[in-house]
Design a protein around this nucleic acid. Sequence first.
DNA 1: TCCTGCATGTAACAACTGCTACAGAAAGAT
DNA 2: ATCTTTCTGTAGCAGTTGTTACATGCAGGA
Lengths: 234, 234
Amino acid sequence: MACLCEQIAGSGIDLSPVCIGHLWIFQNLEADEVEALSREALRKKSTAGQALFLQGDPTDEMFLIKGGRVKLSKVLEDGTELTLDIRKAGDFVGENMFSEEGRYPISAYCIEDTLTCGFSRSQFEQLVLQHPKVGLQIIKNLSERIAWLTRRVGSLAVTNIEDRLYRVLTSVAKEHGMTSPQGTIIQFPLTHEDLSFLIGAHRVSITRAMKALKAAGKILHEDKRLILPGLKIA
Amino acid sequence: MACLCEQIAGSGIDLSPVCIGHLWIFQNLEADEVEALSREALRKKSTAGQALFLQGDPTDEMFLIKGGRVKLSKVLEDGTELTLDIRKAGDFVGENMFSEEGRYPISAYCIEDTLTCGFSRSQFEQLVLQHPKVGLQIIKNLSERIAWLTRRVGSLAVTNIEDRLYRVLTSVAKEHGMTSPQGTIIQFPLTHEDLSFLIGAHRVSITRAMKALKAAGKILHEDKRLILPGLKIA
DNA sequence: TCCTGCATGTAACAACTGCTACAGAAAGAT
DNA sequence: ATCTTTCTGTAGCAGTTGTTACATGCAGGA
C-alpha cells in the first residue's frame, strides 16, 4: 500500500498495518476524502523519551500512533507520577482534545521510537460535521475509553497491592500480549519501577508482590518476559 | 415552559430547569425536531433506592436526569463496592451505551426520588446521523467524562487517605456545592459510610481522616453540612 | 578486565490502614 | 416518652505498605 508513513518512518520503526484509510474511524469515507485527509495529517517521528505533549499544554492536537509505544502519565499534586496507560500502534492519543478545559490533564511520552499522525481540532470538527458516521465511530471509541477507565478506577480501588498488580498485568497483557502455549506473554520489558508507576505503589512493594504472585504460580518470568499462564486473549 | 416532565413528576421532585429542548446536546435542533424527541423520550419516575440499571445489564438505554440524584457504583471482584460518581439533574447517565461490550460496567442507583428521560441506542444513533452537531456535542461531553475519570484515577492513586478524602470532597463540592461567605457548602448529607464507598476505604478510617482535616482547618462541619473554606467554585 | 550504572532482592522498622468491638449521639417510629 | 436504628467517635491490635539501607546480579563502556 502506498503510504507516506513508510517513507518517513525509515527502517527503525515497525509500522502498524493500519494506515489512515484502514482505520476504524475512517471506514465510511470516500477514497478521495481519505486521500485528502492523508495529505493533511501531520506526520511526526519521535524518539524514545520524547513527549508528544505535556500535562498543561493546550489541547489542540490528537494523534494516531502509526508505530511505537506511548506512555500516558500524570503528575499528581504531591509530586507522585502515575502511569495511566500504555498505547500502541493503531491506538489514538489525546482524546481529551475536545474537553472544555483546553489543557491536557496528562503527559504522553514515547517509550519507543514512534511515528504519529496528528490531527488538529478544527480538522476533526470539520470531518465530523461532514461525515456523521465518523462522529458515531468516535463516540463509540470514547465510550470504550470510558469503560476502560472505569475498570482502571476499579483496579486502583483495590487496596491489596498483590491483587492490584495482577489486575494491571492482566490488563497490559490483554492489550499488548501475545498468546503462547504457556499463556499470554508480555512482549516488552517492564521494570519494577515502571510497574510501581502503573500501580501507584512503592518499588519494593512491587518486588514483594511479584514474589508472592510467582510463588502462587500466577505469573512466570522467563528471559525478562512476563508470562501469565491463566490468561487467554479474547 | 410546557413540559411533560412537570406533569409526571408531581410535587415530590425538584426539576432541573433544563428540559430536553434547552439541553446543551440539543442546541442545534429545529423546534419540531425537539418536540419529536420530547415525545419519544421515555419518562420514568424512580424512588430513592431504585436502580436505573444494574452492572451486567445489557446497555440499551441512556438517561437524562431531570430531577433527583443518581449514584454510580461498581462492585469489584472481591465483593467491595465502590462509588464512582454522584450525578445530578441535568447530567447524563449511561454513556457506556455505545461501548462494544454491550453490558453496563456499573450500576446506577437513585439516592433521591428521581425523574429521568431515557433514550434508546437506536434513537441516539439516528439523531447523530441526522444532526452531526449533536454528535460533536456528545463527543465533547464524553471528552469531559474522560478528563473527569482521569482525575478520579489520580485521586485513587494517592495512597494517603486524608488527601484522598479531601480530593473527593473537593470534587463533590465542585459538582454539587453552593458558594457561601464561608466557602463552598455541600448541600446534601454524606455519611461516613457513603464517603467510604466513594474513597475505597474503611468507615473508621474516614472518621480518622475527617478528624484530621477538621483539626487542620481544611473542612468545617455545621448543621450536618460540610463546608470547604479554601474552595471557590469556578 | 574493571568500573559504573541500573534492575532486582532482602531486611528491619516506622507509619498507616483494616478490622473488630463498644459507647454515645442523633433521628425516626410506635 | 420509649424504643429502635443509624451515624459518629474512640480504642487496640494485627496486617500491610512506605521508607531506608544495603547486597547482589547483570549489562555496557572505558
